[in-house]
């Protein structure tokens, strides 16, 4: 199954009410090209799932959306990514407020070596979002509640965040991201290190968060993509093969590669 040069994405990569617009995004690691001319809209208040075999570039693409790839020296990005029609790769763009607007949850839960409270308060503190202790308390409580963790930790807010279970740590990381009140949340395989019960809780949470946030989630689990997302984008060897409403992708995929992947012929 070979890749067609300059493949045009099948399906509906564009959205009526886009929050983020990627246009002809190409990513290079040194000499090696990792992403080939990807154009994709992420609509406001939708959950879009990015799926594909390992090494297909879905995580790389996700990390372009809040310029996390800036931390990798050899990584170079071409094309445009617009957040509310503003190019985030424009020279005058400041990544600090950008990352406050586009938050990120990582594959492995990575709570800071601080207390639960300080983990959540970290973002609001560095961005100067609050001015009084009471306000901060309120933000912390609200974020933990939204992340569905409040009842489990309200009695030990000052215990270290690293002492929580894996699922709780991941929800703490989500609470930490929510606390800076972002517009978009990027999730890079947020459940791959968690057991099924913790996974179910996170998925439930993603569904609730959709009301207020735009979410892009990279996942290896097609069941998860089917459960949480409205649209699904299938990546293959750095190309965006197909984007369609999730139920269409999993019932009648347009492209043979997509079909091969979701029916488990490779990946």
């Amino acid at each position: 199954m070979s890749i067609i040069e300059n493949h045009k994405t099948d399906g509906q990569p564009f959205s009526e009410n886009p929050k983020l617009k990627a246009r002809d995004v190409r990513v290079f690691y040194g000499e090696k090209q990792a992403i080939f001319d990807v154009s994709l809209d992420i609509g406001a208040n939708e959950v879009i799932a990015l799926i594909g075999p390992s090494g297909c570039g879905k995580s790389t693409f996700l990390r372009c959306l809040n310029r996390m790839n800036d931390t990798i020296d050899i990584c170079r990005i071409e094309g445009e990514i617009l957040l509310d029609d503003e190019n985030i790769y424009a020279p005058k763009m400041d990544v600090v407020p950008l990352r406050a607007r586009v938050g990120m949850v990582f594959q492995k839960p990575n709570p800071f070596p601080k207390s639960i409270y300080d983990n959540v308060a970290y973002g609001p503190r560095i961005h100067g979002l609050v001015h009084h202790r009471d306000e901060l308390d309120e933000v912390v409580e609200k974020s933990l509640q939204r992340a569905g963790l409040w009842n489990e930790v309200k009695d030990r807010l000052h215990a270290p965040g690293t002492g929580l279970s894996g699922g709780q740590q991941q929800r703490l990381c989500i609470a930490r991201t929510i606390a800076v009140d972002p517009e978009v949340i990027l999730m890079d395989e947020p459940c791959s290190a968690l057991d099924p019960i913790a996974t179910a809780k996170i998925e439930e949470l993603i569904d609730e968060l959709r009301e207020n946030y735009t979410i892009a989630i990279v996942t290896h689990s097609m069941q998860q993509a089917a459960r949480v997302s409205q649209r699904t984008a299938y990546f293959h060897l750095g190309q965006l093969i197909e984007v369609n409403p999730t139920d269409l992708v999993f019932t009648t995929p347009e492209h043979t590669l997509t079909e091969a992947y979701i029916t488990g012929r490779f990946g």
Binding site: M68, T71, V96, A100, M104, F106, P113, Y122, G123, H127
Partner: peptide, 27 residues
């Protein structure tokens, strides 16, 4: 100190020195 901690901090919009002072050094 694992890169994932730095990524977590950068992902929240922290600057390099904030990340070092508040995340890397405590760890």
């Amino acid at each position: 100190v694992p890169q994932s901690l730095r990524d977590g901090s950068y992902g929240l919009g922290a600057t390099r020195s904030e990340t070092i002072r508040q995340v890397v050094l405590p760890a």
